[in-house]
C-alpha cells in the first residue's frame, strides 16, 4: 500500500471542501476546521494495479490576511489547486498558491480545478483560458471530480 499526502489549496470559498465531500465518504468531523484550520480525509483507490491511499488535507482557504501554514504543506506529494470559475480573482490567485506550494515541495505534482462549472454556460467556459493541468469541475453535479483526484494520483505514482 502506498500512501500519499495531498492538499487542496485555493482561495476562501472556492469549493475545496465540497470537492472532497463529493469524492470521499470518510471524513473527520468539521469541527477540526475551526480549531486548527485543517481537515483530513482519506480515500482508497487502485491505479494501474497499485493500491493507494490518499490522505487529503483540506486546508482552510487562504485570505490576504491569513496564509496557509507552510508546515501543513510540508511532505505533500501533490496538490489540487482550486479556483471558482465564476470568480476571476480566484483564478488569478492560482499562480501565487502554486508558487508558494512548490517553494515548499519542489518535486510535488499538482492539478488545477476550475470548480463550480455548473454556474457557467459552455460559451462562458470557452472564454476562460485554461491553465496547464486544469479541468472544469462541479462538486454539485459530480462532474470530473473523481477524474481530478485520479489524474493527480497517476502523476504522483512512480
Amino acid at each position: 500500500m502506498i500512501r500519499k499526502k495531498i492538499l487542496l489549496l485555493g482561495d476562501f470559498g472556492v469549493g475545496k471542501t465540497s470537492l472532497i465531500r463529493r469524492y470521499v465518504d470518510n471524513a473527520f468531523d468539521d469541527s477540526y476546521l475551526t480549531t486548527i484550520g485543517v481537515k483530513i480525509s482519506k480515500k482508497h483507490l487502485t491505479i494501474r494495479d497499485t493500491e493507494c491511499e490518499l490522505l487529503i488535507w483540506d486546508v482552510e482557504g487562504a485570505t490576504p490576511l491569513k496564509q496557509v501554514l507552510k508546515s501543513y504543506m510540508l511532505g505533500a506529494s501533490g496538490a489540487i489547486f482550486v479556483a471558482d470559475c465564476s470568480r476571476e480573482e480566484t483564478i488569478a490567485h492560482l499562480d501565487q498558491h502554486i508558487e508558494r506550494f512548490l517553494s515548499v515541495n519542489p518535486s510535488a505534482r499538482y492539478v488545477i480545478a476550475y470548480n463550480k462549472s455548473d454556474l457557467l454556460t459552455e460559451e462562458q467556459k470557452e472564454e476562460i483560458s485554461c491553465k496547464k493541468y486544469a479541468r472544469f469541475t462541479s462538486a454539485k453535479e459530480d462532474s470530473n471530480v473523481s477524474q481530478l483526484f485520479i489524474n493527480l494520483t497517476e502523476k504522483m505514482l512512480p
Binding site: N26, I36, L55, W57, L69, S71
Partner: peptide, 19 residues
C-alpha cells in the same frame, strides 16, 4: 481505528502548535 488518519491529525495538531 484508522491510525493513518490519526497520525495525520496528530501531525497537523503538532504542526499547528509548533507554528
Amino acid at each position: 481505528s484508522d491510525p493513518h488518519m490519526v497520525a495525520s491529525m496528530a501531525s497537523a495538531i503538532k504542526d499547528f502548535i509548533n507554528d
